[in-house]
Nucleic acid binder design. Structure first.
Lengths: 346, 346
DNA sequence: CATGGATGCTCAACCGATGGTGCATGATTG
DNA sequence: CAATCATGCACCATCGGTTGAGCATCCATG
């Protein structure tokens, strides 16, 4: 094989990628013509179809790949849309990431997602990096300190949109956590009445006391109790964070009554609960409901229903804001979907 | 507020980001000095600490953010490492994405992940895009056509590493699907013998017949039957794809014997099975095991165990290859971890 | 006081693509 | 046959950093 078969002789790691100058040389044309042909502006620039054809062919068999670094440097828009997200590995955030990518592509944007492990330092770091790549817009999902990120973006003139958690000074799209939690609490109470003829105040487990979503859900939880004429004792609300281990430990630390109902705040907390269930017998009369959805969560026999956040609707709203920046900093609440499970299963 | 408070007066979307030239102007220094100071090479370039300090301070309060597009264009390395992955929204791929990001950052690389929905066209598209961003290396996870991607990368002189599925012509890191499936099959058979005193040939459900992993797992499934002196009837192997709906439909299409054991090939198939279980009664004597792990899968009462792929070990090997490109195209198999669940639960 | 070496900084050529401007040619018109 | 216009292309500045090379200045040395 001679050196000339360009795209074929691989293996050489020192070979630099083909540029428009290489192609210009081969075609006996100028780099600007090559550029025009390859980015589709050749008609406007009055390049002949003959030359356009020749250049396209050469680019093809040289395996040309545009250098977006260079292209974007020159252009005014990067078409990069960034997202920072706490985790990938649960269904809620997994679904957000996946839908976000799909919708971004559908809008002709290049999505870059970074996962920040709920660590404030990583969030800032990730935001900086996305800004350095000149992202046009940043979607800030479930951030611990969205305002800090918002300031960073504002300083660079980049728009930021909050998802999942609200923040001052930027548009936010969140679930209607209050209504979702209230409805779920009602459901658990109703099922307990139906199955056990009793309606004790429920326990609330998981999340962080200062987290907006947890607060809203707790508010809904309380509202449902209030409307049922129930008072929730202090010890019934247990918020030690989102990690599964923390929930597992918390469960070991309390004594549930013989007839108990549990409001589980997130599938991660549910995972902890489920670990606890392996080694401890649940109370004889036991029901639970979970805020957030997981396909397998439905198969816990005591689970009466799950609240599913409407990821599609949330992202649709986010992209509305991307397309048409809103006035001010609206807070949009998207209704959740309550999925009750069939009764009488355990 | 006067116009001079640079980083503070936000809101103006037409404002261009601050460049090293702006800073040079303010500092009364040259752009090259600013560049040297801001990228840490100033000592080597014999810039005085005094000037370095002044420049740093100015950069700080101008809210300077380097334009990586420009920086990377000039440098030889992009430090971008790309990954294409079929989905985010199951625990296996979610864990891969999350670990990958963490490890990439630990190696000083910028991870960019793209999710391809198992669509060959999207895979190629995504690979092209990552190459256009001049990624230094591409991790190809669970691709439907890894060789095509490999050719694309080779043509650009970019290294590609296969993860989860092997491919010719590039290093591959995959699970030891054969051993994992064999061990899981043994476990299911043993539990059925223990619980029901019977050991019928199991059913295998989920996956695609031409998928490498499915083939290997089927081989392990068969090997375990063979060593137990069992023959697997033709109708027992049902491979109609990975989607949950397909598994659900497939389950409705077969009649399980009264004493049945199921090898479920992936948690996605398990999700389908679980949907089927809602509306249909399982056979009176029923056990299952699942290849792939999910925290909630453990709570299906008939589930005797799950095979967990060792994502940490797989990615560690991948990054070994990233750091030190191997000779040739080795295929590394990483052992899976079988997690048996406590017996006597249903 | 010439010589040599450090010190502190600037100049200018890149990296690869883009697009405004302008120069030849050939075709068309008065 | 000159004037006008369309056609087909090339030239070159530019985007924002990076970096080899080089120019002053200052201090120490013989």
């Amino acid at each position: 094989m001679t050196r000339k078969d360009s795209a074929q002789d691989d293996l050489d790691p020192t070979r630099r990628p083909v540029t428009i100058y290489d192609i210009a040389q081969i075609a006996g044309a100028s780099a600007s013509s090559v550029s025009a042909v390859l980015n589709g502006t050749w008609k406007k620039r009055r390049i002949s179809a003959r030359l356009a054809d020749r250049i396209s062919r050469i680019a093809e068999d040289q395996g040309y790949s545009i250098n977006l670094q260079a292209s974007l440097l020159r252009r005014d828009r990067s078409r990069i849309i960034g997202m920072i997200i706490p985790k990938y590995d649960n269904r809620y955030f997994g679904a957000i990431a996946e839908r976000f990518e799909g919708m971004a592509r559908a809008h002709g944007l290049f999505p870059v997602i970074t996962c920040t492990q709920r660590e404030p330092a990583l969030e800032i770091e990730a935001a900086r990096e996305l800004l350095a790549y000149r992202a046009e817009c940043l979607i800030v999902t479930g951030a611990t300190d969205p305002e800090r990120v918002a300031r960073l973006c504002a300083a660079s003139g980049v728009r930021a949109i909050n998802l999942d958690l609200p923040g001052r000074g930027m548009p936010s799209v969140v679930s209607d956590n209050f209504a979702g939690a209230r409805d779920l609490t009602r459901l658990i109470l109703a099922r307990m009445a139906q199955d056990f003829g009793a309606r004790p105040a429920l326990h609330f487990i998981g999340g962080r006391a200062h987290d907006h979503n947890t607060r809203e859900r707790l508010r809904g939880f309380m509202a449902a109790h209030a409307e049922a004429g129930l008072t929730v004792p202090d010890g019934h609300v247990i918020m030690r964070g989102y990690a599964a281990e923390k929930t597992e430990a918390a469960m070991s630390g309390i004594r549930l009554p013989d007839c108990a109902g549990l409001f589980v705040n997130s599938t991660i907390a549910l995972e902890g609960l489920v670990r606890w269930l392996v080694s401890h017998r649940p109370p004889p009369q036991f029901r639970l409901g979970c805020f957030d959805w997981d396909p397998f969560g439905a198969f816990l026999p005591q689970n009466v229903g799950m609240v599913r956040q409407d990821v599609g609707a949330m992202l649709a709203k986010v992209f509305d804001f991307v397309e048409a920046p809103p006035q001010g900093s609206p807070l949009v609440q998207i209704p959740c979907v309550l999925e009750p499970f069939p009764a009488a299963r355990g």
